[in-house]
């Protein structure tokens, strides 16, 4: 297993404001797979993703990524882990406003010694003609494509996406999903996608449903529906 999550528990707050967000979550994901994490708002999806990404700590349990027990890493080692293994995509893109598309990608190119070819990546993501534009000159979909390119440039083994289509309209969302599919095929990147969009579950290898801090459903698709045929 590339990702092994074992009985992780996570709570916030103390006393009256105490909430247990993850109440013993265990699962495993194979390398090269796309996994969708579905569930209602507030169920703990982002929390799970963040703990896997080493952005948040857990109270108990274990998280092994590529056989590294990341819960035992200190902040410095965590940075290194993220630097070497991870790419992140957020709902609101989080691009550097006063850098162009290409420069935004180069910001993360800096983090690795073995980046992908940037022009090829621009081409794959359909950004070649926009590469000199600033984020404010792009549509939401284009910005998200730039964010994806930025996350991919260092060829991460694991791409973590928190609501990547959350801020996009139907058409743009479909484009992003198609890209995710394409990238997975082309680069073999393992992906965890937190989403509201239940249609996604048909295009991914694995579906994990979370409800109230626990996994309510966890299954693999045998047949994948191409993103272009998804309806919602």
């Amino acid at each position: 297993m590339f990702i092994e999550v074992n009985d992780i528990k996570k709570s916030y707050g103390e006393g009256g404001s105490y909430v247990q967000v993850l109440k013993g979550v265990s699962t495993g994901i194979q390398k090269g797979q796309i996994c969708a994490i579905l569930g209602p708002s507030g169920s703990g999806k982002s929390t799970l993703l963040n703990t896997i990404g080493g952005l948040d700590t857990i109270d108990s349990g274990s998280i092994k990524i590529s056989n590294i027990e990341i819960t035992r890493l200190n902040p410095k080692e965590l940075s290194l882990y993220r630097r070497n293994l991870l790419g992140f995509i957020f709902q609101f893109y989080n691009l550097v406003p006063n850098l162009t598309v290409k420069e935004n990608i180069q910001v993360c190119e800096y983090l690795t010694k073995t980046p992908l070819d940037i022009n090829e990546l621009l081409e794959v993501l359909g950004l070649t003609e926009h590469q000199k534009k600033f984020p404010s000159q792009l549509s939401g979909g284009q910005q998200q494509r730039c964010a994806i390119a930025r996350a991919l440039i260092k060829n991460p083994e694991l791409l973590l996406c928190d609501e990547p289509t959350g801020a996009l309209d139907y058409q743009a969302s479909r484009e992003i999903l198609k890209l995710i599919e394409k990238i997975n095929k082309k680069y073999g990147t393992t992906m965890l996608i937190v989403t509201h969009n239940t249609a996604i579950k048909e295009m991914v290898h694995r579906v994990i449903k979370i409800k109230d801090g626990q996994i309510s459903e966890d299954y693999a698709n045998t047949v994948l529906k191409p993103a272009s045929q998804l309806e919602w």
Partner: peptide
């Protein structure tokens, strides 16, 4: 948020 994103990527 941008800085948070950069930290997430390993900066």
């Amino acid at each position: 948020a941008v800085i948070g994103a950069l930290y997430s990527m390993g900066y």
